[in-house]
């Protein structure tokens, strides 16, 4: 155990940004969502996690930024063990890790720019944030990230007035405003139509390539995985069953991950 910790600490000094070791998560009702998951994430990767609903993908992502509490194992973020940190330390960790969600999780009644600015909450004092006194720098940054995802002109719309794809782009801009080292994306396109789907994925690739942001993304569709992932991990019943190049997932692997008789659906 201690040897592997040392190794990962050394790795992180080179280019491993996140190390997950034997991660376990058992819910209070006894459900074992993660059964000892281990993998490394390299800086600048576009890592995709695939698997059926209930395979533990969402739980895994939420353990990484401690939205959920892991019940065993270890998470190393930039060489620091973050498995047991508490209080402000957790808030600091979350601010270094952006996250976007299947249902966007924006504040529907707030403006688009207001939603993006909430990405700077962690570096704004509580009093200033409750009064809406964002720093000029944060305002400029928020607007520039909105421009980056192509909806700069919608800044003063209500978030609820935007289409699903646009809302997800607002969510990306919010995460970027945190100036994170890693971006977690939990089924970012699962509630979007196929056309919008590619727009959102393209923006994720853009921030991955242009800003060098490391991305860990849960996905359903294998065709998207082949198109966007630099590496893929497959989860099944809380365990990793495949790890490697997205293009080497053939029919046999597909059946092993998704079960006998599963058919691949292509989305274009």
């Amino acid at each position: 155990m201690s040897a592997s910790v040392k190794d990962s600490v050394k790795d992180s000094m080179t280019d491993t940004i996140l190390s997950v070791r034997h991660l376990e998560k058992t819910y209070p009702n006894g459900m074992r969502a993660l059964k000892g998951v281990s993998f490394d994430v390299k800086k600048g990767e576009f890592l995709v996690i695939i698997g059926l609903s209930g395979s533990g993908k969402s739980t895994l992502l939420r353990c990484l930024n401690r939205l959920h509490e892991p019940t065993g194992g270890q998470i190393l973020f930039k060489g620091q063990d973050v498995t047991n940190i508490e209080g402000d330390e957790i808030l600091k960790l979350r601010s270094r890790i952006g996250m976007i969600f299947q249902h966007f999780n924006l504040i529907p009644r707030h403006t688009v720019i207001g939603n993006v600015l909430s990405g700077s909450l962690s570096r704004t004092s509580t009093v200033r944030s409750l009064l809406g006194l964002w720093s000029r720098e944060d305002r400029e940054k928020a607007q520039s990230y909105l421009n980056l995802v192509g909806i700069g002109e919608k800044a003063y719309y209500r978030a609820s007035q935007l289409s699903g794809g646009q809302q997800q782009r607002v969510a990306i801009a919010r995460a970027l405003t945190q100036a994170p080292d890693v971006l977690l994306a939990d089924e970012p396109v699962a509630s979007l139509d196929p056309a919008t789907c590619h727009t959102v994925m393209d923006y994720l690739r853009k921030v991955n390539q242009e800003l060098g942001l490391t991305i860990i993304c849960n996905l359903h569709f294998l065709s998207l995985v082949r198109q966007y992932a630099t590496r893929v991990i497959a989860l099944k019943a809380g365990e990793i069953v495949y790890e490697g190049d997205p293009n080497s997932i053939d029919d046999a692997w597909f059946q092993r991950i998704y079960g006998e008789g599963a058919k691949e659906v292509h989305i274009n």
Partner: peptide, 21 residues
């Protein structure tokens, strides 16, 4: 619960989460 999770994920404090989400 969605917006709550969204705001928490940015590293917001409990008070900020209540106020914004």
């Amino acid at each position: 619960e969605g917006p709550i999770e969204g705001i928490r994920s940015t590293g917001a404090t409990t008070l900020q989460t209540v106020w914004f989400a």
